[in-house]
């Protein structure tokens, strides 16, 4: 179940969260730079008007690890289209997200299914993942105040720790922490917390490479901290920033 979430959400989430950092505003702490300024710099690395990306995802099953390959076309934060390339079973499965709507097409069933209404809010077949989790949130800094709270080392990289605290009620996580590389301005770790302060989810990013004039993490591992297991690992195979995407891509008729 967990991996369903990963399957659907990772291409968006990996994207979405980072994207949203764009809209930060200044909440300066004494000696540290302001949260907004850090997140702005992160955005220069991470965000682009469009991106076309091929990635691989490793899903930890009960017995084995399975790898899924997909190609995504993303424009801004409201539009995303993903097509699965392998394995054979998943080939041709497509997903389209337009604002708050999510459609899935499966070639084996020749059906376009919408995940909507209260289904969005509910967990996917008893998993901890709600369909809502896959959807785009409103800009991060509209919902959170950002503050640099400390400096920490991750591996051998010195990081700013940016703490995000919810200023609105309707957020999935009350607070988040982002470790941002002080030199490259790439996030290396993101933790999601409950209001009680309990760590719920952790995303770690790695294999940061310089490409097309920016630093970009090519690996990302997403883990539900309350569950056992190693989490799900996503690897970027290729990525193209600000390429042209034909308008027809983000159309429902493109699913079938």
């Amino acid at each position: 179940m967990n991996s369903i979430k990963n399957l659907i959400s990772l291409p968006f989430r990996g994207q979405g969260v980072l994207f949203l950092l764009l809209f930060s505003f200044t909440m300066s702490a004494q000696n540290y730079p302001s949260g907004k300024s850090i997140l702005d710099k992160v955005d220069r690395n991470m965000s682009s008007k469009t991106r076309i990306m091929t990635s691989k995802m490793e899903i930890q099953g009960g017995r084995s690890v399975r790898t899924l390959e997909s190609k995504s076309w993303i424009e801004g934060e409201q539009k995303a289209y993903t097509e699965y390339l392998s394995p054979a079973r998943e080939k041709g499965t497509k997903m389209l997200k337009l604002e708050n709507q999510l459609w899935i097409f499966s070639p084996s069933t020749d059906r376009v299914m919408q995940i909507s209404g209260h289904m969005l809010r509910q967990s996917v077949m008893g998993s901890d993942m709600s369909y809502e989790d896959m959807m785009s949130d409103s800009p991060l800094l509209e919902r959170y105040k950002a503050e640099v709270t400390s400096e920490e080392m991750i591996e051998d990289r010195r990081c700013w720790v940016v703490t995000l605290t919810a200023i609105k009620e309707n957020v999935n996580y009350h607070s988040q922490k982002i470790w941002v590389d002080q030199e490259r301005f790439v996030p290396l770790k993101m933790d999601l917390f409950a209001k009680s302060g309990k760590l719920l989810k952790r995303t770690t990013l790695g294999n940061v490479q310089k490409m097309q004039g920016r630093w970009f993490p090519m690996e990302m591992t997403y883990k539900d901290m309350l569950k056992e297991g190693k989490g799900t690992k996503m690897t970027v195979v290729s990525i193209q920033f600000d390429g042209a995407i034909p308008a027809g891509v983000f159309n429902k008729s493109n699913l079938k």
């Binding site: 809010r121 709600s130 809502e132 919810a166 009620e169 309707n170 957020v171 999935n172 996580y173 009350h174 999601l192 409950a194 209001k195 009680s196 309990k198 719920l200 309350l226």
Partner: peptide
């Protein structure tokens, strides 16, 4: 509101 919360 849908916000995840956890506690012991």
């Amino acid at each position: 509101n849908g916000t995840f919360e956890a506690a012991d």
